[in-house]
Design a protein around this nucleic acid. Sequence first.
DNA 1: ACCGAATCTGTTTTT
DNA 2: CAGATTCGGT
Length: 751
Amino acid sequence: MTGEPTHLQALNPMQYEAVTTLQGPLLILAGAGSGKTRVLTRRIAHLLYEGIDPENVFAVTFTNKAAAEMKERVEELVGEAGRNVWISTFHSACARILRQEIEALGYTKRFAIYDDEDSKRIVKEIVARWGYDEEDYMRPRKVLSRIDRYKCRMLTPEQVVAQHLAHTYDATLRVWNDYEDQLRAADAIDFNDLIGHTVRLFTEHPDVLERWRDRFHYLLVDEYQDTNKGQYRLLRLLTGARRNLAVVGDDDQSIYGFRGADIENILGFERDFPDAKVIRLEQNYRSTGHILDAANQVIQANRHRKEKALWTAAGMGRKVTLVQRRDPGDEAEWVARGLLQLRRRGFTWQDMAIVYRTNATSRIFERALQRHRIPHKIVGSRKFYERREVRDVLGYLRLVTNPADDAAFLRVCNVPTRGIGAKTLADLRDEAAGRGQPLLTTARSVGTDTDRAARALRSFVEIIDALAEASRTLDPAALVERVVVDSGYKAMVESEGKREAESRLANLVELIRDARDFEFPLEATTASDRLRAWLDRIALAGQDEEIPEGGQVTLLTVHNAKGLEYPVVFVVHMLEGQFPHERSATDEAGVEEERRLAYVAFTRARKRLVITWNREGPGTEFFGGRRQSGDGVPSRFLADLPGQAIEGDLPDLEPAMADSGPAGDREELQQRFGTFLRAHRERRAPPTDEALRLTEIEDIADLVPGRRVHHARFGVGEIRSLKGHRLLVSFTDQRVRPVSLPTEDLHLVED
DNA sequence: ACCGAATCTGTTTTT
DNA sequence: CAGATTCGGT
């Protein structure tokens, strides 16, 4: 087929179909490593080749990294024209749309985007105001995460009640209502609102929707299995009558359930678009046979999935290596040596990755690599823009951009300290709430000139005013510099310890450089537009889009590894409690998501997959250098690995067995492992009711602290406190859980 | 009312 | 370990 244009060459028939079917709804079920990125980029190329205006094409991804990569590959294919295709994340796209259109919703174009920390700050204050701050159930972090879970499913407080997801008297709802009020008053929206408000904008303002529909004639969505309700509605709205919506996804790789990703969106696509064309990409071009077998076998244990099986034309390759060590230190040491050895065999550092379930795991492996001088980099640990000094400086800028941004005000008004204490702030907040004004405005006119607190506030206001003035002409980079000096921040940092100061100042210099290097969108012409565009980018992405420069081993979580591939992958800490994580493995759906995570982890590997664990447990240095409890029980997912695809150690409790190497009948050992796991699970299970004498609770007066009780789900526990209708019980698994009354799940334990 | 030191407490995953 | 909170001294 030499007559074909390059973008249609080297595609298998299914891929070809997916690239060239341009009209109408299209669902591409793309297994891991089946070339979906290739299909997406080629499809964009083909659209342009067919004469579609690049401006009319909109491709959505989930991470900025993925967007950047896709952009790059599209430009490689089509050159300059690729620059005009909208390729971005849902969140960035919505931010951009809202910056132009939000006035229709009663916000100003200056609106702030609150991050997690800002939201938490607001929630915390509300919780305190209601006097809920004594309760475990009402800890700001927890309240916010409940609100978050509702919001990402596009629910309103009323719907939550109507659907019996919470009681009308659940304090969460009260806090939530106040939270929404405060956001509006601060001319701010949170992360979920980026999607939610855009949906609202389009629903309530058909004229606006019409304009954007006219803009995007062709929609492409990557990682479709990760879309949530709001994102799905957004897509449906934008698609309109043209219905040129092409989505690519894999239900087996849905790993963002906790963020509201709704697997229904994949399963229901054909229902919503009955005429949708469905294309399956099942040929895997990434991994060798044994690796693929292992991954397939593991995922097939899930009940809720679309049946499919990846296959490869490549050879079987190496078997999957299992390695059991005595303790976490050994495990990390073994991996480090393994890296060295593979390097001697011709792999480069950037060919190799260490993949784990939780961020905390990275530390012990990082140390091992340091010991051996192995160059490495950790993806997404503490991000640059999350450093305190960076966020502080950004706080000033946000306040300059949007005087109503109370979260920013609270963050920076006393950094460096200028005599604005808790009392001053509390008074200011009351006053501001009374007047219905932002804190900054209120601070301008509160108290008298002789009042010490008022003077302190006013000196802060003056700094902000001066910066605001400067912001009208200065470019972001210069403005950052101005902030650092004029706010007194630099002086503050310099007066600190030497070591500290050095790195913090370096971070600020880095921030200035980032502002200088930022590619401003063309429509941002004024200084303040440019500042806002830069701040938006940071809010949505953070700054480190660090392209994996060569020469380093990559350490990353499974979530961060999605979409990536490496010739050699070490999946470490393959332990019960860790992988599946104990906080997820509480019900079947949770375990299934964890299993998908394992599937994602395994399918990152091209040629070599090494799975390790140790017999002591997680090497996460929890608090104070002491390690998390737990006997190292190998992950239950290992029991699903096909015997003929693995080599090396076998999961077993007996140390002698592990040391004896790969002898004996693997089938039989496999079975024993299964038996062992079952036994282990039973041992961990809450004590059965028969062993205890339980009686009904007849009087609330019986529920005194110290009383032993039994809960249907959590087992035996001891009452800690009783507040209103909420009981705090510390259970035998060391966790304290709230129990709402009345409930039939709870009984008294008679001794 | 502020500040630094002592004390407490918490990690699952992230746009 | 590190951030948040509380406490005691100014």
